[in-house]
Amino acid sequence: MTDMLLSINGDEYPVVVDTRETLLDTLRERLDLTGAKKGCDHGQCGACTVLVDGRRVKSCLTLTVTLDDREITTVEGLADGDRPHPLQAAFIAHDAFQCGYCTPGQLCSAVGMLAEAAAGWPSVVTEDVCAEPVLDEEEIRERMSGNLCRCGAYVNIVAAIGEVAR
């Protein structure tokens, strides 16, 4: 067991964790931050996506003990007080979810993805990897492919993200 301080959504959480614990289990089972979801626990579905130092990662493959000096953002930290994040509002407006279980991961992933695109990162569908990518629908689809949605809301997810990206 390890004593540590976690910084999540701007708040500090002192925790005593089992070295085996993933960030996902610490959030859900220890801190009652149940927004991040466990869909597969193997990095294969994306439902557990959170941001660590602003980058999207899979919290089910991240050991909590590695995070003592990192800044963690979960879906609970996206809104600005009572004002939803533009992506949250767009997801509702475009009906970009059904069961909602993949949604927190989709949202955190989209926040990270938009930052990556803004930084000029290419993707595998970028025609010329040397050029500045244009975040069209094909680019959004590829970049969001680490987040599975079994209800099949992809069309609406891409529309919602596309609206915010513009």
Partner: peptide
């Protein structure tokens, strides 16, 4: 993999 995995 995926964007998240590549970040890790």
């Amino acid at each position: 993999a995926s964007g998240q995995i590549r970040n890790m």
